[in-house]
């Protein structure tokens, strides 16, 4: 469903951050993308979701047979791409429910479905909030404003549950969570796994993968995927850290020269 081919990207006017990413994700697959800080994980997520300010200098992204890079972010969302933000944005003055209803209806409209009215929407969200153990009162609060770190991340997963994406990119949804919040968020993610929903789990640590077993694990380093494997690769990283990856990458570079 998603093919990333030799993707090079940079912040407009800046140095290259992604330097030839290749990745193929098929329907229903869960891919973990790991890597040290600054390796380009969030940049990859932002480029996939269509954030302004990045420039793709080479390569392509094909999503469900379409050129993803040509679509504005809202169209990607309507076509089923979802990004769970590493840092969800606080929007005072807009309630969570208004925001989410606007989003869900924009997506439904695109899919040729009737818009949900206030009651349908409320009923639908009730179920989905249970998934990440969120209280209903959250709906009337301004979006993410004053939410705890855990609430923000749970809110992201709640939104994913409501918007039902085909491709979910979760950017460090596990970081900054205590054990209980991690369990809730991770179980929520695992529950949303389905044969027609692919996921890219961007994470720093292996602990999320104890709850959500990935089909593939990739290591992103200095803007490239330098290693791919299965669950065992994540465990190896957990045990040995990233230094050996760096050493290997260094070696590979030297042999190239």
């Amino acid at each position: 469903m998603l093919t990333i081919n030799n993707l090079h990207a940079r912040v407009v006017g800046g140095a290259e951050i992604l330097r030839g990413v290749n990745l193929v994700v098929r329907h229903g697959e869960v891919h973990a993308v790991m890597g040290p800080n600054g390796s380009g994980k969030s940049t990859l997520a932002h480029v996939l979701a269509g954030r302004d300010g990045y420039e793709v200098t080479a390569g392509e992204i094909v999503y469900e047979g379409k050129d993803l890079l040509r679509m504005p972010p809202e169209e990607r969302a309507r076509e089923g791409v979802f990004l769970s933000f590493q840092y969800p944005v606080e929007i005072p003055g807009v309630s969570t429910s208004y925001f989410l209803k606007a989003a869900v209806n924009a997506i439904r409209k695109h899919r040729g479905l009737d818009e949900l009215d206030a009651i349908d929407f409320l009923n639908m969200t009730k179920e989905k909030m249970k998934l990440v153990e969120l209280d209903q009162s959250l709906l009337s609060r301004p979006l993410n404003e004053g939410f705890s770190g855990g609430e923000k991340k749970r809110n992201e997963i709640f939104q994913m549950a409501v918007l039902e994406p085909r491709l979910a990119i979760l950017d460090e949804t596990d970081s900054g969570l205590d054990i209980d919040a991690l369990r809730i968020v991770a179980n929520g993610i695992d529950a949303l796994r389905s044969p027609d929903r692919a996921m890219i789990l961007i994470t720093h640590y292996q602990r999320l993968l104890n709850y959500v077993t990935p089909d593939f694990v990739h290591v992103l380093f200095e803007g490239r995927i330098v290693k791919s494997g299965g669950q065992e690769l994540a465990r190896e990283l957990e045990a040995k850290g990233y230094d050996w990856i760096k050493a290997e990458a260094e070696l590979a570079r030297q042999t190239l020269v």
Partner: peptide, 24 residues
């Protein structure tokens, strides 16, 4: 970007944020 990434179109996004600005 947050609002657009959820499928909300740019015009509605701007209206919503303008409303939010005033609603304080």
């Amino acid at each position: 970007f947050y609002l657009r990434s959820r499928g909300i179109d740019p015009a509605a996004t701007r209206s919503l944020l303008t409303y939010a600005f005033a609603s304080e």
